[in-house]
Simulated scan of single mutants.
Amino acid sequence: MKTQSRIKAKTGRLLAAFVISAALGGAAQAQTDSTPPSAAQSLSCLRLPSAALSYPAKHRFDRSHGLMRLRLHFEKPDAAPRVEVLANTAREDMQDRVYRYVDDYRLPCLRPEDGTVSAVQEFNFSNSAMEELPVPETPQRRLPFCLVMPREDMRAPMSLSQQVQHVVASALFSGTGDQPPEVKILHSTGDRRIEEAVIERVQSYRLPCRTGQQEPQVMRQQFTFVPAGHRRFVLKQDAFSLVDFLSMTQGAQQLKAFFDFDTMNCPFKVNYTMYSPALPNEVAVGGKRDPNRIPFLRWLRERQLAFSSERQANELFGQKVQIQVPCGRLDLQPDTAAAGS
Rank of each mutant, 00 (worst) to 15 (best):
V135I: 14
E137D: 10
E137V: 11
E137I: 09
T138S: 14
Q140A: 13
R141F: 05
P144Y: 06
P144V: 06
F145P: 06
L147F: 07
L147H: 02
V148N: 00
M149D: 05
R151M: 11
E152Q: 14
M154K: 10
M158N: 06
S159A: 11
S159E: 08
L160N: 11
S161K: 09
Q163M: 12
Q165M: 11
V167G: 08
A169S: 14
F173R: 02
G175A: 13
T176E: 09
T176L: 01
G177K: 00
P180R: 11
P180Y: 09
P181R: 04
P181L: 04
E182R: 10
I185C: 01
S188N: 05
D191M: 10
I194F: 08
I194E: 13
E196P: 03
E200V: 04
E200F: 03
Q203E: 05
R206Y: 00
R206K: 11
R210L: 13
T211S: 14
Q213V: 08
E215V: 11
Q217V: 04
Q217H: 07
V218G: 02
V218M: 02
Q221F: 01
A228H: 12
G229M: 12
G229I: 04
H230D: 12
F233S: 12
F233N: 09
L235C: 03
D238Y: 07
A239M: 07
A239N: 03
V243R: 04
F245N: 03
L246R: 07
S247R: 12
T249S: 15
Q250F: 00
Q250T: 09
G251H: 06
G251R: 09
L255A: 07
K256R: 08
F259I: 09
M264Q: 15
